[in-house]
């Protein structure tokens, strides 16, 4: 993957499309290892998306399982025509699951699941998540008190910098600046320490 750092964007995208095509073809042929690879490839982005959309970790865990199972079942049946659009397909399945949940306010039970689906109950993902949260708390506690307050008022209370500035009797520009800086400090810290494998993409002109 590190080698991809020097690849051009076209080559990187081409490799990604080839990998997607391999997964789709292999799952359609009943390859269980490919199903496990598929789960490893998509469980994190699916979870991140569902958590951002639902803000409910328990519901996210349930829906994540449903999404991955439903996607695997569909791939086994060969329902994806354009294999290179595997990511878009998984996102579509996730949106359907979410929409169904919000329409009926309960998880869909219509899916007939086969018995031989891969085991998704690995605890490592949960451990990673807890570790990230601990890192985030460590990073937050290392911030200046006012920065912590600004993060709380922004991310949890959903207040705009102007309102926060008024409440903390500060200049709105200072609030904006401090919010940006504090957010970056924490996310960079968490990202840097929680990444277990190198990023598999090229970073162009990005300063962190």
């Amino acid at each position: 993957m590190i080698g991809e750092q020097s690849d051009g964007p076209g080559l990187v995208a081409q490799k990604a499309a080839q990998e997607a095509e391999r997964l789709v073809a292999a799952i359609a042929q009943g390859d269980r290892d490919a199903e496990r690879d598929f789960v490893l490839r998509y469980q994190k982005p699916v979870k991140a998306m569902l958590l951002a959309r639902t803000r409910n970790p328990d519901l996210t865990a349930d829906l994540q399982q449903d999404v991955l199972f439903e996607a695997i079942c569909a791939l086994r049946r060969g329902q994806l025509r354009e294999a290179s659009k595997l990511s878009a397909f998984v996102i579509g399945v996730a949106r359907n699951q979410l929409n169904n949940y919000y329409r009926s306010n309960k998880r869909t039970e219509t899916l007939e699941l086969p018995d031989d689906l891969p085991d998704l109950s690995s605890g490592s993902e949960r451990v990673e998540e807890q570790e990230r949260e601990t890192l985030a708390m460590n990073a937050i506690s290392s911030l200046d008190k006012v920065d912590r307050e600004i993060l709380q008022l922004t991310l949890i209370d959903g207040l705009k910098p102007g309102v926060i500035a008024d409440r903390l009797r500060m200049n709105p520009d200072v609030v904006r600046q401090r919010k940006l800086r504090a957010t970056r400090r924490v996310t960079d810290f968490v990202r840097r320490l929680s990444q277990t494998e190198p990023a598999d993409h090229n970073v162009v002109g990005r300063v962190t």
Binding site: K44, A48, L51, A52, P57, E129, R132, E133, L135, A136, M137, A139, I140, L151, Q152, L155, I156, T183, V186, T187, D188, V190, R191, S194
Partner: peptide
């Protein structure tokens, strides 16, 4: 993921 961890922590 980092931003979600930050929000969850808060």
């Amino acid at each position: 993921e980092a931003m979600e961890a930050l929000t969850a922590g808060l």
